[in-house]
Amino acid sequence: MKTILFTLLTFFIYRFAKWVYSKKSLPIFHSLLLAPILLILLINIMNVSANQYLEATKWLTHLLGPATVAFAVPIYKHLPTIKKYMGTIVISVTTGTLAAIFSTFTLSKLIHLKADLLTSILPRSITTPIAIEVSKEIGGLPTLTTVFVILTGVMGGVMGPSVIKWLSIKTPIAKGLALGMAAHGAGTNKAMEYGEQEATFSSLAMIFAAWITLLWGVLLLPALINMKPIF
Protein backbone atom coordinates (compact mmCIF):
# COMPACT_ATOMS: atom_id res chain seq x y z
CA MET A 1 0.00 0.00 0.00
CA LYS A 2 2.81 2.41 0.92
CA THR A 3 4.56 1.63 -2.34
CA ILE A 4 1.50 2.62 -4.37
CA LEU A 5 0.81 5.70 -2.26
CA PHE A 6 4.34 7.11 -2.36
CA THR A 7 4.84 6.20 -6.02
CA LEU A 8 1.69 8.10 -7.01
CA LEU A 9 2.67 10.95 -4.71
CA THR A 10 6.11 11.17 -6.32
CA PHE A 11 4.64 11.06 -9.81
CA PHE A 12 2.06 13.79 -9.25
CA ILE A 13 4.49 16.07 -7.42
CA TYR A 14 6.97 15.69 -10.28
CA ARG A 15 4.28 16.47 -12.86
CA PHE A 16 3.25 19.49 -10.82
CA ALA A 17 6.87 20.68 -10.65
CA LYS A 18 7.19 20.26 -14.43
CA TRP A 19 4.05 22.34 -14.91
CA VAL A 20 5.33 25.08 -12.59
CA TYR A 21 8.66 25.23 -14.46
CA SER A 22 6.86 25.48 -17.80
CA LYS A 23 5.05 28.57 -16.49
CA LYS A 24 7.95 30.14 -14.58
CA SER A 25 11.35 29.13 -15.99
CA LEU A 26 13.33 30.19 -12.93
CA PRO A 27 16.18 28.01 -11.54
CA ILE A 28 14.40 27.52 -8.19
CA PHE A 29 11.39 26.07 -10.04
CA HIS A 30 13.37 23.47 -12.01
CA SER A 31 11.48 20.18 -11.67
CA LEU A 32 14.57 18.27 -10.43
CA LEU A 33 14.95 20.84 -7.66
CA LEU A 34 11.35 21.76 -6.84
CA ALA A 35 10.01 18.18 -6.75
CA PRO A 36 12.48 16.93 -4.08
CA ILE A 37 11.86 20.05 -1.96
CA LEU A 38 8.09 19.49 -2.09
CA LEU A 39 8.53 15.78 -1.34
CA ILE A 40 10.74 16.50 1.67
CA LEU A 41 8.18 18.97 3.04
CA LEU A 42 5.31 16.56 2.45
CA ILE A 43 6.86 13.45 4.03
CA ASN A 44 7.84 15.57 7.03
CA ILE A 45 4.25 16.75 7.39
CA MET A 46 3.12 13.12 7.14
CA ASN A 47 5.72 12.07 9.76
CA VAL A 48 7.30 9.62 7.32
CA SER A 49 11.03 8.94 7.68
CA ALA A 50 13.38 9.18 4.72
CA ASN A 51 14.17 5.46 5.04
CA GLN A 52 10.47 4.55 4.87
CA TYR A 53 10.00 6.68 1.77
CA LEU A 54 13.11 5.24 0.09
CA GLU A 55 12.06 1.69 0.86
CA ALA A 56 8.58 2.28 -0.60
CA THR A 57 9.89 3.88 -3.81
CA LYS A 58 13.16 2.00 -4.33
CA TRP A 59 11.91 0.40 -7.54
CA LEU A 60 11.77 3.88 -9.12
CA THR A 61 15.54 4.09 -8.71
CA HIS A 62 15.92 0.72 -10.43
CA LEU A 63 14.12 2.17 -13.48
CA LEU A 64 17.01 4.59 -14.08
CA GLY A 65 19.00 1.81 -15.72
CA PRO A 66 16.36 0.83 -18.32
CA ALA A 67 15.61 4.52 -18.93
CA THR A 68 19.26 5.11 -19.79
CA VAL A 69 19.31 2.08 -22.11
CA ALA A 70 16.24 3.49 -23.92
CA PHE A 71 18.41 6.31 -25.26
CA ALA A 72 19.77 3.73 -27.71
CA VAL A 73 16.69 4.21 -29.92
CA PRO A 74 17.45 7.76 -31.18
CA ILE A 75 21.16 6.91 -31.28
CA TYR A 76 20.47 4.04 -33.69
CA LYS A 77 18.31 6.34 -35.82
CA HIS A 78 21.20 8.78 -36.33
CA LEU A 79 23.92 6.13 -36.58
CA PRO A 80 25.38 7.33 -39.94
CA THR A 81 25.94 10.85 -38.56
CA ILE A 82 27.41 9.45 -35.36
CA LYS A 83 29.90 7.31 -37.31
CA LYS A 84 30.93 10.36 -39.34
CA TYR A 85 31.76 12.39 -36.23
CA MET A 86 32.89 9.55 -33.94
CA GLY A 87 36.42 10.90 -33.53
CA THR A 88 35.13 14.34 -32.53
CA ILE A 89 32.66 12.80 -30.11
CA VAL A 90 35.24 10.62 -28.35
CA ILE A 91 37.80 13.43 -28.03
CA SER A 92 35.18 15.91 -26.81
CA VAL A 93 33.67 13.62 -24.20
CA THR A 94 37.05 12.34 -22.98
CA THR A 95 38.23 15.94 -22.55
CA GLY A 96 34.98 16.81 -20.81
CA THR A 97 35.25 13.97 -18.31
CA LEU A 98 38.85 14.90 -17.48
CA ALA A 99 37.87 18.56 -17.05
CA ALA A 100 35.00 17.55 -14.74
CA ILE A 101 37.18 15.26 -12.61
CA PHE A 102 40.16 17.63 -12.28
CA SER A 103 38.04 20.74 -11.65
CA THR A 104 36.06 18.90 -8.98
CA PHE A 105 39.21 17.49 -7.40
CA THR A 106 40.99 20.87 -7.39
CA LEU A 107 38.04 22.78 -5.91
CA SER A 108 37.49 20.05 -3.31
CA LYS A 109 41.12 20.28 -2.22
CA LEU A 110 41.02 24.08 -2.14
CA ILE A 111 38.12 24.08 0.30
CA HIS A 112 39.59 21.10 2.21
CA LEU A 113 36.71 18.66 1.80
CA LYS A 114 36.92 15.45 3.83
CA ALA A 115 37.92 12.27 2.02
CA ASP A 116 34.41 10.76 2.00
CA LEU A 117 32.94 13.97 0.53
CA LEU A 118 35.69 14.13 -2.08
CA THR A 119 35.14 10.57 -3.26
CA SER A 120 31.38 11.14 -3.29
CA ILE A 121 31.52 14.29 -5.41
CA LEU A 122 34.09 13.17 -8.01
CA PRO A 123 31.61 11.15 -10.17
CA ARG A 124 29.02 14.00 -10.20
CA SER A 125 29.21 14.57 -13.97
CA ILE A 126 27.74 11.25 -15.10
CA THR A 127 24.27 9.76 -14.99
CA THR A 128 23.05 8.53 -11.60
CA PRO A 129 23.17 4.69 -12.00
CA ILE A 130 26.79 4.76 -13.19
CA ALA A 131 27.79 7.50 -10.73
CA ILE A 132 26.56 5.34 -7.85
CA GLU A 133 28.68 2.40 -9.01
CA VAL A 134 31.77 4.58 -9.47
CA SER A 135 31.17 6.08 -6.02
CA LYS A 136 31.09 2.59 -4.47
CA GLU A 137 34.23 1.63 -6.40
CA ILE A 138 36.29 4.53 -5.02
CA GLY A 139 34.86 4.47 -1.49
CA GLY A 140 32.31 7.27 -1.73
CA LEU A 141 28.82 7.54 -0.27
CA PRO A 142 26.27 6.71 -3.00
CA THR A 143 23.51 8.78 -1.37
CA LEU A 144 25.70 11.88 -1.37
CA THR A 145 26.82 11.14 -4.91
CA THR A 146 23.19 11.08 -6.02
CA VAL A 147 22.63 14.53 -4.50
CA PHE A 148 25.70 15.95 -6.27
CA VAL A 149 24.64 14.37 -9.58
CA ILE A 150 21.18 15.95 -9.31
CA LEU A 151 22.63 19.36 -8.42
CA THR A 152 25.05 19.15 -11.35
CA GLY A 153 22.21 18.18 -13.69
CA VAL A 154 19.93 20.97 -12.50
CA MET A 155 22.65 23.62 -12.75
CA GLY A 156 23.73 22.40 -16.19
CA GLY A 157 20.16 22.18 -17.44
CA VAL A 158 19.39 25.70 -16.24
CA MET A 159 22.66 27.41 -17.18
CA GLY A 160 23.46 25.37 -20.30
CA PRO A 161 21.19 27.23 -22.76
CA SER A 162 22.62 30.60 -21.62
CA VAL A 163 26.19 29.34 -22.06
CA ILE A 164 25.34 27.94 -25.50
CA LYS A 165 23.86 31.29 -26.51
CA TRP A 166 26.78 33.25 -25.05
CA LEU A 167 29.34 31.10 -26.89
CA SER A 168 27.26 31.25 -30.11
CA ILE A 169 27.17 27.46 -30.45
CA LYS A 170 25.05 26.79 -33.53
CA THR A 171 25.41 23.17 -34.64
CA PRO A 172 23.05 20.52 -33.20
CA ILE A 173 25.98 18.16 -32.56
CA ALA A 174 27.90 20.69 -30.47
CA LYS A 175 24.79 21.71 -28.51
CA GLY A 176 23.91 18.09 -27.76
CA LEU A 177 27.43 17.06 -26.72
CA ALA A 178 27.78 20.11 -24.46
CA LEU A 179 24.46 19.53 -22.67
CA GLY A 180 24.92 15.77 -22.33
CA MET A 181 28.47 16.08 -20.99
CA ALA A 182 27.73 18.97 -18.61
CA ALA A 183 24.34 17.92 -17.28
CA HIS A 184 23.74 14.22 -18.24
CA GLY A 185 20.00 13.36 -17.93
CA ALA A 186 18.81 16.90 -17.18
CA GLY A 187 20.92 18.17 -20.07
CA THR A 188 19.43 15.59 -22.40
CA ASN A 189 15.96 16.62 -21.30
CA LYS A 190 16.86 20.23 -22.16
CA ALA A 191 18.43 19.13 -25.47
CA MET A 192 15.07 17.62 -26.47
CA GLU A 193 13.66 21.15 -26.47
CA TYR A 194 16.14 22.07 -29.22
CA GLY A 195 15.43 19.08 -31.44
CA GLU A 196 15.87 15.35 -32.03
CA GLN A 197 19.45 15.56 -33.25
CA GLU A 198 20.54 17.61 -30.23
CA ALA A 199 18.84 15.08 -27.94
CA THR A 200 20.56 12.20 -29.73
CA PHE A 201 24.06 13.61 -29.30
CA SER A 202 23.31 14.63 -25.74
CA SER A 203 22.29 11.03 -25.00
CA LEU A 204 25.46 9.79 -26.66
CA ALA A 205 27.64 12.19 -24.66
CA MET A 206 25.96 11.09 -21.44
CA ILE A 207 26.53 7.40 -22.20
CA PHE A 208 30.12 7.87 -23.39
CA ALA A 209 30.89 10.01 -20.33
CA ALA A 210 29.64 7.18 -18.11
CA TRP A 211 31.85 4.61 -19.85
CA ILE A 212 34.93 6.81 -19.82
CA THR A 213 34.44 7.83 -16.19
CA LEU A 214 34.15 4.16 -15.25
CA LEU A 215 37.57 3.73 -16.86
CA TRP A 216 38.93 6.73 -14.93
CA GLY A 217 37.38 5.20 -11.82
CA VAL A 218 39.85 2.34 -12.12
CA LEU A 219 42.89 4.10 -13.56
CA LEU A 220 42.81 7.72 -12.41
CA LEU A 221 40.56 8.43 -9.42
CA PRO A 222 42.40 6.20 -6.88
CA ALA A 223 45.68 7.98 -7.73
CA LEU A 224 44.03 11.40 -7.29
CA ILE A 225 42.42 10.45 -4.00
CA ASN A 226 45.71 9.13 -2.58
CA MET A 227 47.65 12.16 -3.76
CA LYS A 228 49.35 14.09 -0.98
CA PRO A 229 47.93 17.57 -0.30
CA ILE A 230 49.55 20.28 -2.42
CA PHE A 231 47.59 23.28 -1.19
Rank of each mutant, 00 (worst) to 15 (best):
K2V: 11
I4K: 11
L5S: 07
F6P: 03
F6W: 07
L8V: 12
L9I: 11
T10E: 05
F12A: 08
F12G: 02
Y14C: 11
V20T: 09
K23C: 07
K24S: 03
S25G: 02
P27F: 07
I28H: 03
L34Q: 01
A35V: 02
P36I: 07
L39E: 08
L39K: 00
L42R: 06
I45M: 14
N47P: 09
S49A: 01
A56E: 02
T57A: 13
K58D: 14
K58H: 15
T61A: 13
T61F: 14
L63Y: 12
L63S: 13
P66V: 09
A67T: 03
A67Q: 01
T68A: 13
T68C: 02
V73P: 10
L79H: 13
I82A: 00
I82V: 05
K83W: 00
K83S: 08
K83E: 11
K84N: 04
Y85S: 04
G87N: 10
G87S: 10
I89P: 02
V90L: 14
S92H: 11
T94N: 06
T95F: 14
T97L: 13
L98A: 09
A99S: 11
S103Q: 09
T106N: 09
T106E: 11
L113M: 13
D116C: 04
D116R: 10
I121V: 11
L122N: 06
L122S: 00
I126D: 04
P129I: 01
V134T: 00
P142C: 08
T143V: 12
L144K: 09
F148T: 04
V149T: 05
V149S: 03
I150S: 03
I150H: 12
I150Q: 10
L151S: 08
M159W: 01
M159K: 02
M159I: 07
G160D: 10
P161L: 08
S162G: 02
S162F: 15
K165S: 11
P172I: 05
P172D: 01
K175C: 00
K175E: 07
G176I: 13
G180K: 03
H184V: 09
G187C: 04
T188R: 01
K190I: 13
A191K: 08
E193V: 08
S203H: 04
A205E: 00
A209Y: 08
A209W: 01
A209C: 07
I212F: 11
T213C: 05
L215G: 14
G217E: 04
G217M: 12
L221G: 10
P222H: 03
A223T: 09
L224V: 09
I225S: 05
N226I: 02
I230V: 09
I230Q: 09
